[in-house]
Amino acid sequence: MATELNQPFYSPAEVARLAGLHPSTILSYIHAGRLYAVKLSERTYRIPNRAVRKMLAPETVSPPRIVEQPHGHVDPTEADREPEWPWPED
């Protein structure tokens, strides 16, 4: 299953096919908040790859990385500087 999940996002119909469910079931999952989807228009949803993986292949999904420093130094002027483009090698 994990090897099939190679698209950045999916339509409800595609998720239904992958899951062996009816498309209306996937839509009900979306409306119930059980499956995350971005609504592009009244009838158009797109489900990100990760949300599909969480549903169909959760063992392939890594958890969030959380770092907390209760007393770490915060530079208040950092906010006034523009961020760098993340991929300078491009």
């Binding site: 990100p48 949300a51 969480k54 958890p63 420093q69 770490g72 915060v74």
Partner: peptide, 24 residues
């Protein structure tokens, strides 16, 4: 926020200063 972002990708969170007056 983490729950929502977690549906798009694997989020990373750095929370600094929660015990201080300034927090990032």
């Amino acid at each position: 926020i983490l729950a929502i972002l977690d549906d798009l990708g694997s989020p990373s969170l750095d929370d600094t200063g929660k015990a201080d007056a300034l927090r990032r």
